[in-house]
Structures are given as structure tokens and as C-alpha cells.
Nucleic acid binder design. Structure first.
Length: 154
DNA sequence: GCCAACGTTGGC
DNA sequence: GCCAACGTTGGC
């Protein structure tokens, strides 16, 4: 059973083009410091799960393309690095606090499927992304929502 | 740049 | 364990 997720990234920081140009087109999704998001990565994501790569905090926020989970949950190394902005002094090697997954590029949409368009698409009303005040950087997407999104993607 | 909504922190 | 204060997210 393959699930679908939506993962946000600020394109100024890390965009889908950045992912596509990485060696192996993979990237460890480090720096997540929210427990709900961590729990999804740690406990629920499976190899091959589909990821909608969402560009946030930019001119046209929306889904820029697709990735997939290429490596399941392991400790986020940045929590151990004092020089990292993601350093967590409470974390130890024996007891890591933060976990991440690795994602791999699959495809880039010809055009970003905008937040605006998703808001106006019947069938997507219940997407967690569209909830007022929703800031969670990782959210589950239902199969139905996933199919609708794929039908809109160019 | 503004600010609403949310999560976290820490005093009590 | 409550909750005010604070910091962050992210659309607009």
C-alpha cells in the first residue's frame, strides 16, 4: 500500500530543481523540528510513497512536482551538529530526537499547481494544506485527493 | 512587510 | 498542569 504525502519547502532554500540536480537526485529532508511532522516521517512513511513537492513562502505557492520516499526514517544528523541551525542540545546519539526520510526526484510539473487553483478544485476541500491556519510542513494526502491533483498537473 | 494562526517555552 | 509570552510559518 503506497501512501501520498505533501511536503513543503521554500524554493529559495531548497526547490524541486535543487532536488533534481542533486547526485542521485536524492536529498535527506533534514531540519524538520515539529513533532507531528517528525512522527509522520518516523512512523508512517514507507519506501516508494509518493510525495507532492510543495513550494511555500514564494510568489506562486503550490505543488511543483513529485518525489518519492527513497529511504525510510533515520536520525537527522543536524541535531548533533553544534554549528547547525538545527542543532538540538537535548539530542544524543543514543537517544536522537529528530528523524527524517530521504526523498528522490520523480518529476517536475510543467507548471506549478497553485494553492489558488487547489482551493477552487472540487474534491480538494478537505486537504489539510487548505485548512485555515495550517502550517504543518508535512501532511498526508488521500488517494482521491492524489488522483485529482494528478489530473490537474501538467 | 504585515499579521493571523499555531507550537513551544517556562514561570507559577 | 495552566496559560501568557514569545517565536515561527507562510499566505497575502
Amino acid at each position: 500500500m503506497t501512501n501520498t504525502w505533501l511536503m513543503k519547502s521554500e524554493p529559495d532554500c531548497f526547490s524541486i530543481d535543487d532536488l533534481a540536480s542533486r547526485p542521485n537526485q536524492t536529498e535527506a529532508w533534514d531540519g524538520v523540528r515539529n513533532y507531528q511532522a517528525r512522527n509522520m516521517m518516523r512512523d508512517q512513511m514507507r519506501l516508494g510513497d509518493r510525495v507532492f513537492f510543495y513550494h511555500s513562502n514564494c510568489k506562486v505557492p503550490g505543488i511543483a512536482g513529485i518525489a518519492e520516499i527513497s529511504k525510510v526514517s533515520f536520525a537527522d544528523h543536524t541535531q548533533f551538529e553544534p554549528d547547525s541551525q538545527y542543532f538540538d542540545p537535548k539530542a544524543t546519539l543514543a537517544k536522537p530526537i529528530w528523524y527524517l526520510v530521504e526523498v528522490q526526484f520523480v518529476e517536475k510539473f510543467n507548471a506549478v499547481l497553485s494553492l489558488e487553483q487547489m482551493r477552487h478544485t472540487p474534491g480538494l476541500e478537505d486537504m489539510l494544506l487548505l485548512r485555515k491556519g495550517s502550517r504543518l510542513s508535512i501532511t498526508p494526502v488521500t488517494n482521491e485527493q492524489g488522483q485529482i491533483i494528478m489530473s490537474l498537473a501538467l
